[in-house]
């Protein structure tokens, strides 16, 4: 259940960034979560509901961008959609791949007032 640590870090970032912008309310938060970020979405949602209580994010609208996996084959340079980390390159069948999208886990933006 490392998702709770993830949510706590998000609250921390939101607090710091909103005070830097001299804002007291965060209306919306936009978060990128890649499918290989090791965050389980159901656990994340559950942790979110509990953890944001009595914080600056309690009433904030949360927008999550789920980012799909993309890889580049180091053997034939093909770029392709990656569903599982262990998938082979669909062009040459090699497992020599580099994940180029899907590892994201970041706070993208806030809308504050």
């Amino acid at each position: 259940m490392h998702e709770l640590s993830v949510v706590m870090s998000i609250i921390d970032i939101a607090q710091k960034e909103s005070s830097k912008a001299n804002a007291s309310i965060i209306d919306e938060i936009e978060i990128d979560i890649g499918c290989f970020s090791t965050v389980e979405i159901d656990a994340f949602e559950f942790a979110w509901q509990q953890a944001v209580k009595e914080t600056i994010l309690e009433t904030t609208v949360k927008k999550v961008n789920h980012i799909k996996g993309k890889a580049k084959c180091l053997n034939c340079s093909a770029e392709f959609a990656l569903e599982n980390i262990y998938d082979a390159c669909p062009v040459c069948g090699e497992h020599l791949i580099d994940i180029i999208e899907g590892k994201e886990l970041r706070v993208k933006s806030l809308i504050v007032s």
Binding site: I13, S18, K20, V107, L110, V112
Partner: peptide, 27 residues
């Protein structure tokens, strides 16, 4: 505020977009 990562969204409600672009595990 001349900070370039703040954009006014709805001026008369004083809403601003803050581009954070920070890794959640940054700390």
């Amino acid at each position: 505020d001349d900070s370039h990562d703040l954009k006014e969204l709805d001026h008369h409600h004083h809403k601003k977009i803050v581009d954070v672009e920070k890794d959640v595990l940054h700390e």
